Amino acid sequence: QAINGSNVFRRAFSEVFRRRSLLFVGSGLTESYFVNLIAESLFSLGPSAMPHYALFTAKDLEKADPEFLAVRLGITPIVYGES
């Protein structure tokens, strides 16, 4: 609700995503609302010059599309274990 109901939150997230390197830990990057938030940022501000990373277990990465994360969202998935 906070993400969808607050333009201020979405703009703030977009600025942080664009200007800082982020490490996503337990972030739910397989959730559509979160992917949509990042995609909105990329659409309105363009790609970030900063690298972004996300930690996944091998099991959790099976639920995501690593190529989509890397190419479309600019987030490099890092696998740290099986489960």
Rank of each mutant, 00 (worst) to 15 (best):
L73I: 06
E82K: 14
L37A: 10
Y33R: 09
I38S: 00
I78D: 03
E62A: 09
P51G: 01
F17Q: 06
A2W: 14
L45H: 09
E40W: 11
E62P: 03
L55H: 03
S44P: 00
S6N: 13
R19H: 15
V16T: 12
N7M: 12
V25F: 06
S44H: 07
G46T: 05
F56H: 13
I3L: 13
I38K: 01
P77Y: 12
V8W: 11
V16S: 07
N4Y: 05
S14T: 09
F34K: 15
L29F: 03
M50D: 05
P47K: 14
E15G: 11
R20W: 02
S21D: 08
Y33V: 13
R20N: 07
A58E: 15
F68E: 03
P47C: 07
T76C: 08
S44N: 10
G74W: 01
F17G: 02
G81S: 14
I78N: 01
V79M: 02
K59L: 00
L29T: 00
S41T: 12
F24K: 10
S21E: 12
V25P: 00
A54V: 06
L73A: 08
P77S: 08
Y80F: 15
L69P: 11
M50P: 00
S83E: 13
R11A: 12
A2T: 05
E62M: 10
T30A: 12
T57M: 02
V16H: 09
P77M: 11
R18M: 13
V8G: 00
D60A: 13
Q1V: 09
L55T: 04
F17H: 11
T30P: 05
N4E: 14
S32Y: 02
K59G: 00
F24H: 08
S48A: 12
R20G: 04
S14D: 12
F13R: 10
L73N: 01
R19S: 15
A54T: 04
T76W: 07
L55E: 03
Q1E: 14
F17P: 03
A49G: 15
V79C: 08
N4W: 00
V35I: 15
D65Y: 08
T57C: 00
E82I: 04
E67H: 11
N7A: 14
P66I: 07
N36K: 15
V71G: 05
A2G: 13
R18L: 14
G81M: 04
I78F: 09
L61R: 08
L45W: 01
N7Q: 12
G46P: 00
T57E: 07
E62L: 11
S41V: 06
I38E: 04
F56Y: 15
F43W: 14
P77G: 10
G5T: 11
A2M: 13
Q1D: 13
L61F: 09
S27W: 11
N7D: 14
S41L: 08
P66M: 04
S48D: 05
R10G: 02
F24D: 10
E62N: 07
Y53I: 00
S14M: 10
R19D: 15
R11Q: 15
P47D: 06
M50R: 15
P66A: 05
D60F: 09
F13H: 09
L23N: 07
K63D: 03
R19P: 00
F9P: 05
V25H: 06
N7W: 13
V71T: 02
S6W: 10
F34W: 11
F17N: 05
